[in-house]
Simulated scan of single mutants.
Amino acid sequence: MTDHIILLQAPGGTTQFRIENQPARAPGPGEVRIRQQAIGTNFLDIYHREGVYPLPSYPAVIGAEAAGVVEAVGAGVVEFELGDHVAYAGPPVGAYCSTRNIVAEKVVKLPEAISSKTAASSLLKGMTAYMLLEKVYDVREGSIVLIHAAAGGLGSILVRWAKSLNATVIGAVSTPEKASRAASYGADHLIVGREADIVAEVKEITGGVGADVAYDGIGGDMLVKTIRSVRPFGTAVTIGQAAGPVPPISIEELRPGKSLCHPSIMAWCSDTNRYRNAANAAIRAMEMEIVSEIAAEFHLKDVTKAHEEMESGRIAGSVLLIP
């Protein structure tokens, strides 16, 4: 078996990826070596690749989540054994490889019922949903939630999780096909089309009041529309910029008393206790079938095709890399 690692030589397009053979290394003290069976991809990977979120040095290995089997255990590690079914997510990045040595405190055991593919597609997104719905804003019964890209990898989990909290969900999607998917995840109301008047439609759905909280991973000029879709003293949350950088926003857009939040799951996970709580919550959610649908799978060596598919906007769900 030939193991591979994907090196990002410098920030830029997919031409900056380089595939190299990777000999397995013995794990250091406090580490385990994981034979990765599935690697999750996220828009975060694209931001890292492009340099929107710069990495400390290059060449670098990106990727923030994966799942597989413990293949070797370093000195001092007592909580894992060879053959354990495990996953990890969050910092430090470095998942685009066949095997990975990683500190044991970042690794979580998976129940037998959760496959490596499910974990790799849903762990980081589930952790993000936990942070957004239960920590950034306390979504509860009766909350009105606006979710952009409601048929996407993160969006589908947000819809399902919000419904498990008995919230009312307004899902915004780009196409009728994605609207059908979002409806199947439990969205109560749908706003369809890239040119839809988000603000007017949210106001109509909510009787002129607006959403309690709105999650925007679109970026560009969508964020100001998202803020305007939120009720007075509600919260708008920016979690990505798939449509491009967010232009400057006037502070007056936050009147009267609206909150604007820009949380980072990677920053959240820098604290071990927060990381563990979020990972365990995401695993419980997976056991309740709050997961991201797997839209496509690519061999690790076809990482360029995987990124092109993610950036195309054609798919609804998660893209996996298979070593």
Rank of each mutant, 00 (worst) to 15 (best):
N166Q: 13
G257N: 13
T238K: 01
L124M: 14
H148I: 08
V145T: 05
I39R: 01
A162Q: 10
Q241M: 14
R49P: 04
V159D: 03
Q241D: 07
S143A: 08
E204W: 00
E204K: 15
G83Y: 12
E81A: 11
Y47E: 11
A243I: 07
S143E: 05
K106Q: 15
H262D: 05
R231G: 07
E141Q: 15
N280L: 14
I46W: 08
M288I: 10
V32D: 05
D138W: 08
L133C: 06
Y53N: 10
G217H: 06
K163Y: 10
V107S: 09
A285I: 05
A60N: 13
V303H: 09
G94H: 08
A162E: 07
I157P: 03
A10F: 02
V69Y: 00
A211H: 10
R140V: 02
F43V: 09
I290M: 00
T235I: 03
G40N: 01
M286F: 10
G244T: 12
Q36P: 02
G208N: 13
A120Y: 08
I322H: 05
A24H: 04
H307W: 01
V199S: 00
A24D: 03
D45M: 09
F17Y: 15
I102P: 02
S57K: 15
I198A: 10
H299E: 15
R276A: 08
V61G: 05
G28D: 14
H85F: 10
M1C: 06
Y58V: 03
D84G: 03
R181H: 07
E65D: 15
S184C: 03
L44F: 11
I144D: 08
H189L: 02
G68A: 04
N166L: 09
M266I: 09
I218S: 01
T118H: 02
P56F: 13
D197R: 07
Y215H: 03
P263T: 04
G207R: 12
A200C: 04
G68K: 10
Q16L: 04
A267Q: 14
G317S: 06
V78P: 04
P111Y: 09
A120P: 03
R181N: 10
R255Q: 12
I322K: 12
V213F: 04
S156Y: 05
I227R: 10
R140I: 07
S229D: 08
P91D: 09
T304N: 14
V103F: 11
P323G: 08
E289S: 07
C97H: 10
D197Q: 07
A66E: 00
L165Q: 13
E31P: 00
M286N: 14
A183D: 11
R33V: 11
R18M: 07
G186K: 06
N273W: 01
V61S: 12
A316L: 06
I144V: 12
I114P: 11
P23H: 02
Y53V: 11
E287P: 05
V291D: 00
R274M: 08
G210K: 02
G152F: 00
